Amino acid sequence: MLENSENKTITIHGEAVQPGEAKWIQIPIDRLPTGTLIDIPVYVFNAEKPGPTLLVQGGLHGDEINGVEIIRRMLFEGCYKVKTGAVIVLPLLNIFGFIHFSRQVPDGKDVNRSFPGMKKGSLAARIAYHVTQEVLPHVDFGIDLHTGGAQRHNHPQIRFTADFKESEALANVFNAPFYFSTSLIDKSFRKTAYEMKIPIIVYEGGESMRFDEYAIKEGIQGILNVMKYLNMIDKIDPMLIEREESEYLTERKWLRAPTAGMFVPQVLNGSSIEKEEILGFVTDTFANYCKEIKAPYSGFVFCINNQAVVNQGDALFHVGA
């Protein structure tokens, strides 16, 4: 394709976005019991010059608000005005979960376990269906924004698909503090995209229902890094102290509570650890026992459970090397 040729037109839900145009498109999903119509908001920024189409998606889980804020700030600052290709932005996919401060939709189903969806299925399946049918066919690369679930706090990290080289390349370019491969989960957004040969990376930063300024800035920086890599933008102004490279983790392990009690971490999330180092304690309320949680090997902590009272078997630390 010649460098000065015109970019493609992107059509979503019957709305055409011509080269050089930006549009806000609404895909109707359902109504609240009050009758209020609920739409999936989609922003499309289509450059005049041809190039790849990047999807940036937040709020697949309604209580994971850091991704929503990352996208909001980038929309406010005009970060998606690209010189080549196109950016499709889904700022808040699971609006129902967002309204109810919940990971799921009201019937308890997880949208990220409902792909590729069904036109006349459950609410979660219908949301997944519209993304699969109307958005993904236009996408060449994607960034899916998440946080830790429940009260687990994820230090900024990127997850990619091991046998998808384009996915690993994007993970490296994003340059989060940590990156590693994870297996594909059945009926997940990433697996459906994989089957459509679309490389997706998943950014995890912070915890649900709580803003984390550091995770937000890392997310913005990483998205800009990917856009620069795809030749969509020219310049990146660093928001954070630059690292030489991400830490690539090839070994990971969850450390779990050996008994019920109060959990007291002794290390900071994201810090390096030494084998046999005491990472935290689980103790009872009457000082009758105190169980140490030790590092199984030297490496890093990249997730800490912020729940103070835990049960036996609860995930406390995610460590890797």
Score class of each variant (00 low, 15 high):
111 V>L: 07
52 P>H: 07
16 A>Q: 11
98 F>C: 03
304 I>V: 15
112 N>A: 07
302 F>C: 00
276 E>R: 15
312 Q>A: 08
212 D>L: 03
125 A>I: 08
21 E>H: 06
256 R>P: 10
285 T>I: 14
132 T>D: 05
237 D>M: 05
142 G>D: 07
6 E>S: 13
220 I>E: 12
196 M>I: 03
152 R>I: 08
50 P>R: 07
33 P>K: 07
20 G>C: 07
140 D>K: 01
217 K>T: 12
316 L>W: 12
283 T>H: 10
272 S>P: 05
200 I>K: 02
73 R>G: 03
235 K>E: 07
297 Y>A: 03
70 I>L: 02
225 N>A: 01
85 G>T: 01
85 G>M: 09
3 E>R: 11
310 V>D: 05
194 Y>M: 10
33 P>Q: 09
65 I>C: 07
299 G>V: 11
310 V>S: 11
282 V>T: 02
175 N>G: 08
255 L>Y: 13
235 K>I: 02
11 T>Y: 04
69 E>F: 04
143 I>Q: 02
11 T>M: 12
188 S>Y: 10
78 G>T: 09
244 E>S: 09
35 G>S: 11
301 V>Q: 09
205 G>R: 06
307 Q>S: 14
288 N>I: 05
255 L>G: 11
233 I>Q: 00
45 F>T: 05
220 I>D: 07
263 F>M: 13
16 A>H: 05
293 I>F: 08
158 I>M: 06
148 G>V: 12
232 M>N: 06
277 E>Q: 15
97 G>R: 14
195 E>H: 15
250 T>S: 12
293 I>Y: 04
228 K>H: 10
218 E>F: 00
112 N>E: 04
52 P>D: 12
128 A>E: 09
164 F>K: 08
4 N>H: 04
186 D>P: 00
260 A>Q: 08
183 S>M: 12
120 K>Q: 14
112 N>Q: 11
38 I>L: 15
278 I>D: 04
303 C>P: 13
270 G>D: 09
163 D>W: 12
196 M>E: 15
6 E>T: 13
135 V>K: 03
80 Y>H: 08
153 H>G: 06
155 H>S: 10
286 F>R: 08
181 S>N: 14
295 A>Q: 14
147 T>K: 02
86 A>H: 08
258 P>C: 14
101 F>Q: 13
224 L>D: 05
256 R>N: 13
231 N>Y: 13
170 L>I: 15
252 R>N: 06
